[in-house]
Amino acid sequence: MAKEVYRFSAGERFVHWCHGVAFLLLLFTGLGVLVYAFQPAMNIFGGIQVTRNIHRVVAVLFTIGMIVGFIGKGQGARQMRRWFKDVINFGNDDFAHAKNFPIEFFGGHKPFPPQGKFNGGEKLNSMFTILGTICIVISGYIMWFASGPSLLLQWAYPIHAACALFMAALLIAHLYLGILHPDSNQALKGIFTGWVPAKFAYEHYEKWYNEEAKETIRG
């Protein structure tokens, strides 16, 4: 077996999958309400009214999962807070990496400065996701609980739809990089088991590898 380093704690994986599964369910059920052509597909849940309720139940579970994932003194929650702090801290090295992103996306390679635990591209994806999630959660609860016509409710609709559609576009690219991209999909194992190939970690996150990851090496 190739050598591996520990990348994602159980807490990080929990929040990732909580987010991922909830997002897919919410996207699917939400499209049933938003787009007329999707409505017939909602029969698999037992019709549009059941779907609307599923959307709300999943939304609540999702919100609780996110809050639980970030608060508390456990190692997982600490990791999530660290991720948050990391990704909103976007420096020159991150920019240099993100600039090369289109080249890497299509399978090319151009050297970039050593990256921390999260590289520039991942930081951008994370920031879009954080912003989109906060906006979609707030606008969603407004749509659920606001009564009567109001500016607040009227503006919640385009914000909710914009977050859903653009995060769906982001998700497509995320799935590609995680599953289909011949280089970056080496990380896929990490989000299931926590461990990624050491060589891959060194090549993609040199700074993080030298400062932290190499201490965890196994295999």
């Binding site: 299509f106 399978g107 385009p158 739809a161 914009a162 559609l165 653009f166 497509i172 590609y176």
Partner: peptide, 22 residues
């Protein structure tokens, strides 16, 4: 929002298809 969102999803899908092919 709706047309732009549709374009974004379409562009993303097209980009990953091109990515796999390239």
């Amino acid at each position: 929002v709706h047309p732009l969102g549709g374009i974004a999803i379409g562009a993303s899908a097209a980009a990953i298809t091109a990515g796999v092919i390239v």
